[in-house]
Structures are given as C-alpha cells and as structure tokens.
Design a protein around this nucleic acid. Sequence first.
DNA 1: TTGTACGCGTTATCAA
DNA 2: TTGATAACGCGTACAA
Lengths: 335, 335
Amino acid sequence: MKRITIYDVAKEADVSLATVSRVINDSNVVREDTKQRVQEAIEKLGYKPNAIAQGLALSKTTTVSIVMSEKLFAYNGKILNGLMDVAKIYNYNIMFHTTSQGISKMQDVIESIIKSHVDGVILFNDNFSEDEMEVLQEYQIPMVVVGSLLPETKVNNVGNVYVDFEKMAYEMVNELFDKGINDISLVEDKLNLSMMEQMRSGIERAFHDHGTEFKKYISYDETYKSSYNFLTEYFKTNKPSQFVFTFRDSQAIAVLNSCQEAGYKIPDDCQLVCVLNNKYLSMTRPNISTFNIPEYDMGAVSMRLLTKMLVDDESVRENKSIELGYSFIPKGTTK
Amino acid sequence: MKRITIYDVAKEADVSLATVSRVINDSNVVREDTKQRVQEAIEKLGYKPNAIAQGLALSKTTTVSIVMSEKLFAYNGKILNGLMDVAKIYNYNIMFHTTSQGISKMQDVIESIIKSHVDGVILFNDNFSEDEMEVLQEYQIPMVVVGSLLPETKVNNVGNVYVDFEKMAYEMVNELFDKGINDISLVEDKLNLSMMEQMRSGIERAFHDHGTEFKKYISYDETYKSSYNFLTEYFKTNKPSQFVFTFRDSQAIAVLNSCQEAGYKIPDDCQLVCVLNNKYLSMTRPNISTFNIPEYDMGAVSMRLLTKMLVDDESVRENKSIELGYSFIPKGTTK
DNA sequence: TTGTACGCGTTATCAA
DNA sequence: TTGATAACGCGTACAA
C-alpha cells in the first residue's frame, strides 16, 4: 500500500500541492470552497503529512530528546510524566535515550541526538559531563537540565529546573542542632550523585556554622539487599546515629528494617528521613518521614521551559534557571 | 553555526557528493586513497549525516515507537531496559509514547506514529483496542505486542512476546487444591487488565476441573492507600481467604499489612503471592512469595523480534509468537 | 487566491 | 571508480 502524499491529495482535489500545503498549515489565504475541496480529499484519501519530509523542509523536527540513565527512570516516573504531558500539549514527539555504563555511553547518545536533528534536549542530572554538554552546545541544540542546581559553568545558555537540595539539607540540620541533635548521617545514593553532593555541602555548611565538622557521609553498595546486609552487620557493634538522611525509598527501608531488627526504636533511638517521597514510604511501620519534592512539576516546567526556548529564545534569555520549592512531610520516623 | 552537509565534505575532499555518500555507506567501489581523503574531510569538518534526510531518501527512519500507559512505566522499568538495550545494539532510535486517560489518547499516539514514519512499533498490553491495531496494520507498520498472550484476532501478522499467565494461575490453583486449599482470592490489578483476565480464566478453569466455581475475584480502587483502607475495614468483619493472588507489589503489601494488623498470621491464616517480583517484596516481614517473570527478557526478545521483522519479515513469518517461561519463588508468605 | 519551481540533505540510478 | 541527476515529500518565495 503506497502511502498517500501531498501530490495525491492535490490531484484528487484538482489543485496544486502548494494549495494543499496551505490548507494543512492553516494559511488563511485559501478560498473557502477550495479549502473545503482539499479537506474532503484529505479525508477521503486518509492523508497524513510525512513528518520526515516536513522536518527536512523546515529544518525542524518537533521532536525533543530526553536523556536519562537506565537505572534512574524507575525512580523518575513522575518527572517523566510531567515531561510527557507537556510535550503532548505542545505536540512534540519524544526521542528517548538511556545511558548505562556498558552498552550505551553518553557519547553514542550525543551522536544520535545530533544525527536525529531534534529541536531540543532534556538532560537528567548525573548523566553527562561538562564536555558532553559543550558538544551539544556547539551544535546549538537548546538544552535544559532537570534535577539539581547546575554548577557555575562555562557552558552557558542552558536551562535548569531544580530543587535546592543544599538549602534543604542546611535548613534541616540547623533545626536539628537547635533541638540538640548533632549526631547526623547522610547515606550516599549513587544514582543521584550531584544531588548527594549538594546535600552533603548543605550539611557541611550547617556543621561549620556550628563550629564543628560533618563526618558521617556513609557510602556503600547501592542495592537494598547489600545495604540491608551491611547495616545489619554494622548495628551489631555500632549504635545508629541520632538522625539519618537517606535519599531513596530502598535506602530508607534498609535503615528502618536493619535498625529495628537490631533492637533500636525508631524514631526514639534513631530518626530517619527519606528525601524522595513515594508510596512505599507509607507501607512501612512506622511510615517514613520525607520531603515533598515536586517531581511532576519538575518535568512539566522543564518541558515548558524548553518549548519556550525553542519558540523564542530571547524571551527567556535572562531566566532560564527555575527553582522549585519543597516541603517537609513529617511522618512516623521523626519527632 | 551552519550544520555541515555532505556537500561541504565533498567540496573539502574535492570529490562529488555521490562519492561521499558511498564512503559513508561503506560502499566497496571507492578507491582507497579517495576514501582516505573523504574520511579525513569528514573528520576535519565534524560531519554527521542528517538522519532526517536519510529517512526521506530511504523511506526508513531506523526509529521504532514504544507505546505504554503513563501509569505502567514505573512498573515496567525492566522491560524498558530490555527494549532499550537491544534497540541500542541494532542502532534503532526510540520514539516514546505514553497514553493516559485524559491528555493523550491512543488515537493521538497512532496519529503521531503514522506521521513520524517509524519503522516499527512495540505495544504494551492493555493499551489499545483491536480497532487501533488495525489502523497500524493498514499502514503496514510492523508491530509486536509485549505482555500477555494476544487473543485470536483478525489482526494478523503481529508479533507477540508473552508469559502464559493463564497456565501459571491454572497450575498454581491445581496445586493448591491438591493441598486441600480451595478458598482462593484474586485481587484485580486495573493497570494490567489483560493479564488479570488470563489469570482469572486460569483459576476458573482449575476450579471447574474440580467441579466447583471461582467466585472471589476482588476488585477495588487501585492505589495502595485505598486498598489498605478497604481491606482494613473488610477484615474487621471478614476472615481473609486461605490464599490470595495479587499482581503488583503495592497490592500485596496492602494485603499483608492490613491482614497482619487485623491480627491474622501470614502465612498461617492466609497465604499470599504477588505475581510481579521486585525488591520491595523483600522489604516486608515476612518477604512476599512471588514469581520470576523474565521482564528484561520480555523487552529484549520483543525488540529483537521486531528488528527481525523489519529486516526480513519472511524469516519470522511463522513464529512471531514467543512464549517466555516463569518460575515460582517461594518466600515467607506461602508454605 | 493559486500555481511554478526551488531547496532541504540524502541515496540510488545511470553514464562516463 | 567517479560524477550528474533524479527521486524522497514537503514548505515557500515568487510569479501569475
């Protein structure tokens, strides 16, 4: 079955292809009755414009690339939801790229982004180096980074939608100090290293403000099982900290389970917070305290920012950096 | 910055664009020294072929569409991983489409698939009607459906990679009957309705084989919270079934928590199985028994099947339906 | 208001 | 072995 082209429609409606093109693109110079005829022909033949040919003619694909690490997207469902919903509203197609250590290096992803001539790119944090961003920049591909605050960089003109994890950690630790709590741990999340870095630096700043030094940055393997095993062993000879920051659900649950099984009471012996919120935190006993990070909005705002940059870069030249708020959700693991 | 085209390379290497094209596409008729010259020019200018133009010229985009419902992809991470890895190997780009009730109806997704001229489509179950598949079929777009067994349909020539949930349920229930257990419930999962249908029919068949009738197909709202609340209320006046099938982690955990809190012992008073396995099932006490569904393989096999269909449909004409195995993983909620 | 003709960047066919 | 040139399907100046 041959695909219907604009020529077929033109012949059917007995006009030139230019006229058909005008009808498709809502030009208002077409006379009403010919417009009618053309639309009937389109309907009759079931014509759909070829986006590839349009892309070539216009040098515009109405497609944006989303890049995230293979391990992350199970956790970033809501961000992805936000991205997809807004992309749908603006009629953008999504090219989806994942990166992982072995099979798909960022290098290949960049290569395919450039070849595909997508109109813009959305990058998740922890996925790329500055060099890699510069490559994209050379090709003038509009770009927004979603996740945490982008460090000062020579790569300019990049959109950034973020939550200020540094501030979040800083404020929380200050409050803890006010309550007399100073034995605080931060459990590393290898999937979100840039966010970890910011939280750590916020905590360090708070410690420093109180004339002391933060030492309990805990780093071990990334799976629930190994975390759980590590901690179970650890708690045989060590007491838990007064307060533990974790980033993801599974880390928090590992702490909760191992700690409770070692005979410690939560939140009495050890308070616990998990930064990223999801339903699993409500399935434990007690429920795990967390933050309300506006994940869906992070996606939605990022995509909206990108579309603005695509339509008219000037209009957003000065405010490509958008901070989103957060709030603490106390549950059963803090007091 | 103007993008480098094949013309620029031709001029730089002092050959015609035809020759450049031959070098790019590994034609073996090019003399070695000119090939050298061209490659140097490509290198020097940083030329990358424009995939859009290639797509137009070849009527082939090396892009495949993946369609899944917005709510599902948080659960289908592993399938997606399998899909992406294999796509990467065969150098296919991925167009990612999500469907949801409001914003992006399947109709729009189909429209954009057709316009994009992707080479093939991978559909997740529960995402489309037979009519919608027929539309894709009309446009001759190769298609594979991943998830559960496709029912007999007039839409032919569709790939299908599946796990036989009907058999799984049937076998398990038979074993239960052998052990004298006949009070069995199946909790509906609204996110995976076609799989539910198959499990239900497997259970019904087993009941029928034993001369009785299956009645405990339980259906309520889909979130953890509402499930938990429903069950908590339910167990105030009702005993749990001897054996409960759930599909997703949150449903299983809702049963586990509410049941235990109502004073029932698991697995003594009530046995529990969750079909889809993930790490959260190991975070509960006791750990929840489950099945090993080869999710990653489902994705990988699907994509490989699709690429085969794209390259040479004849070679796979007779075996487009691929069943993958499963196995039971007993943990603490069964005995 | 409509049509003609060129350009978008490739591949492929044919001559040379 | 190489080079012109016609497609691929569309948008758009420009002409009519």
